[in-house]
Amino acid sequence: MGTSRPYDDWLIMNESITSDSLSHVAGYPEFFNVETTLLLCAFSCLIGVLVGRKTSGLQRNSAKNLGGGQRREKQDVDYGNVIDSAFEARPFAKKLKVLCHPDRFAGNESKQKLAEALHQEVEENSHNLKELKLLELRIKTELTDP
């Protein structure tokens, strides 16, 4: 004994509407069919691969041309120093300015000139902690030592 599906009539009734709408959708945007979409995907993949190969090739060539000893990457900036300098450099520079102030060496002319030069350098690098640490070393060796 066969069981009849409850919505058969309903499906049959709407069949024409469904087929009409399907045919409408199928014929509507002719540009976006499967072939065009696949072609677009393939084209964008090709562009991506070519760009990737070209850029990596350029980087390899530039690194090769620069040579071993002179090889300088683009990431040459010492970001750690930049961040540290933002908060520590000013008080450190202030301390160094006191240490190498020319008035401290009033009796010794050569040291006074050296102190002036170092004071100037500290002033110029007052926001670069790395340079200030090197200058501190110079101040200690050249000015304070006998």
Binding site: K74, V77, V82, A89, R90, S126, H127, N128
Partner: peptide
């Protein structure tokens, strides 16, 4: 000003 000058006084970073 200290934060800004730290970036500006780093010639490599400012040029980049």
């Amino acid at each position: 000003k200290d934060v800004g000058l730290t970036v500006l006084q780093n010639p490599e970073l400012s040029r980049q």
